[in-house]
């Protein structure tokens, strides 16, 4: 059986972020490479935030998917070789976040300042007339905001 990188990436679409179950690890951008050497598969991953407690679960889920698809020789490596930033969330991922009720992170030029953090587009009504309540939220990757238009509180996936 010859496996391809595309096939493996397709399988990994079913692995979701445990805290945002609509978002796959592929769309989140944390799978940074898949290397196939004969029948040995190496999947490279990188954390969103260094202290993310979901990383171990995600790694195990990736291993389970490889096993389930008949891969017996594999290694899942977590490293900072390629560093994650929130621009790496795909367009599909951004759509999924919004439907889940989380504002997707605004794109940036890799220097996140207060102006970028404060901006959020309300996932409920689409208004930009929002204010940031605090840059820290219920998980490391979320900030808390309030929409002045629809008067709803909401969370944003933080730009990083």
């Amino acid at each position: 059986m010859v496996i391809t990188k595309e096939e493996i990436l397709q399988w990994l679409q079913e692995v979701k972020d445990p805290e945002i179950p609509v978002l796959s690890l592929i769309d989140l951008g944390v799978i940074t490479d898949v290397i196939i050497d004969n029948d040995h598969v190496t999947v490279k991953m990188t954390p969103t935030f260094a202290g993310c407690p979901a990383m171990d679960y995600m790694k195990k889920d990736v291993e389970d998917v490889l096993k389930k698809n008949g891969i017996s020789k594999f290694e899942v490596v977590v490293s900072f070789e390629k560093q994650w930033n929130s621009n790496m969330i795909s367009d599909d991922g951004r759509k999924a976040l919004k439907e889940f009720g989380l504002a997707p992170p605004p794109r940036h030029n890799l220097y996140v300042d207060l102006d970028i953090i404060k901006y959020a587009n309300c996932p409920n009504c689409g208004s930009d007339n929002t204010e940031m309540k605090t840059p820290f939220g219920p998980t490391l990757c979320r900030s808390l905001h309030y929409c002045n238009n629809c008067k709803e509180a909401f969370q944003q996936f933080k730009p990083l």
Partner: peptide, 13 residues
């Protein structure tokens, strides 16, 4: 929440 989040960041780092 802020100090707790920063704590989690620092320990992870």
């Amino acid at each position: 929440i802020a100090f707790s989040s920063m704590a989690q960041d620092k320990v992870g780092q």
